[in-house]
Amino acid sequence: MPQKEEFTGIELEFHSGIIPPPYSHMYRISLDWSKGDLTAKLDLHYTEREDLTEEEILDEGFTLNDDFAYEGPLSIVWIKAISDKVNDTKWTGKSVDDAGIILKLMDSGKPGKVKVPANQEDWQVFGQDLIQAIYETTKKEAPLTVHYREVSSEKVSDCAITIRFSDREVIFSQENETRNINWEYTVQLMKLIFTPDYNYEIAKEEPGNKRGHYIECGDGLWHELGKGVVNIDPSNDVVSKIKEIFKDLMEE
């Protein structure tokens, strides 16, 4: 078990490395709770776009100005998540040459020595979660809502899951009732949901009414599980797992 660190904030730096533009980017996030509240500062900059045409940038789904800066409050629920993440992390002596994340633990607002997490991929996901939390806090983006419908011979059952990164809350809604569900449980469910292959050529703007299972992942397009959503690996039946989890959620 890694030794517990004493700190009142972190500074996180990421560089995407040799990924080509318009995807290449770098960011720095500072998070400070030395005065009780959590203050966040984000500087996100997309790099090496000078030689691209406007059309090349827009065709990849970006805008002409995707840089973003923020300095202000973030929900204090993130303090425990950050502390737990740091204290569960193993550090490596290797340097991050071209791409990846480095950390500095902060004490009373002053950053300490550079630390390199061994679990780079986990920290990169965590960094994206923090950026999403800031986007939602500033209303730049709305929380993700996934809608699900199960049609049987007896009835049509609709439900939805809204994931709010801003305060790390997940709201499950069905008919006129809502309840909170576990954050980590939902993270694993989202990984499952985005694992299969989605066929957008047969996606529809309305959910199906024939017997089956349908999902809409926040973009307004509905896919039928087993037809428009299919397993990539035949030995890993993710589609059935998604059906089972939503069935359990709707029956609780």
Results as ranks from 00 to 15, higher is better:
77 V>K: 08
77 V>G: 03
78 W>I: 05
81 A>W: 07
82 I>C: 07
84 D>S: 13
84 D>M: 11
84 D>G: 11
86 V>I: 15
87 N>A: 10
87 N>T: 13
89 T>H: 15
89 T>N: 13
90 K>Y: 12
95 S>M: 02
96 V>D: 01
103 L>V: 06
104 K>S: 11
104 K>M: 09
106 M>R: 13
106 M>A: 07
106 M>N: 09
107 D>V: 05
108 S>K: 15
108 S>T: 00
108 S>A: 10
109 G>N: 02
115 K>H: 14
115 K>M: 14
117 P>S: 06
118 A>R: 14
119 N>G: 09
120 Q>V: 00
120 Q>S: 10
122 D>E: 11
122 D>P: 02
123 W>Y: 10
124 Q>I: 05
128 Q>W: 04
129 D>N: 13
129 D>C: 05
129 D>V: 01
133 A>L: 03
134 I>K: 05
135 Y>C: 02
136 E>T: 04
136 E>Q: 10
137 T>A: 07
138 T>H: 07
140 K>W: 00
140 K>I: 00
141 E>F: 00
141 E>M: 02
142 A>K: 14
142 A>Y: 00
143 P>C: 02
143 P>W: 00
143 P>F: 01
146 V>E: 03
147 H>D: 12
149 R>Q: 08
150 E>V: 08
151 V>K: 13
153 S>C: 00
153 S>E: 00
155 K>C: 06
155 K>L: 06
155 K>V: 08
159 C>G: 07
160 A>Y: 04
160 A>H: 08
160 A>E: 06
161 I>C: 03
162 T>V: 01
165 F>A: 06
166 S>P: 02
168 R>F: 03
170 V>Q: 03
170 V>K: 04
171 I>L: 08
171 I>V: 14
172 F>Q: 09
173 S>T: 09
173 S>C: 02
174 Q>T: 08
175 E>V: 09
177 E>K: 15
178 T>S: 15
179 R>H: 14
180 N>Y: 09
184 E>Q: 15
184 E>C: 06
186 T>A: 06
187 V>D: 03
187 V>F: 05
188 Q>L: 13
190 M>E: 05
191 K>S: 11
191 K>L: 06
192 L>C: 06
193 I>K: 04
193 I>Q: 02
194 F>M: 08
194 F>G: 09
195 T>C: 01
196 P>D: 01
196 P>L: 01
197 D>M: 06
197 D>H: 11
198 Y>N: 04
200 Y>N: 13
200 Y>R: 14
202 I>D: 08
204 K>A: 14
204 K>L: 12
207 P>C: 12
209 N>I: 09
209 N>Y: 08
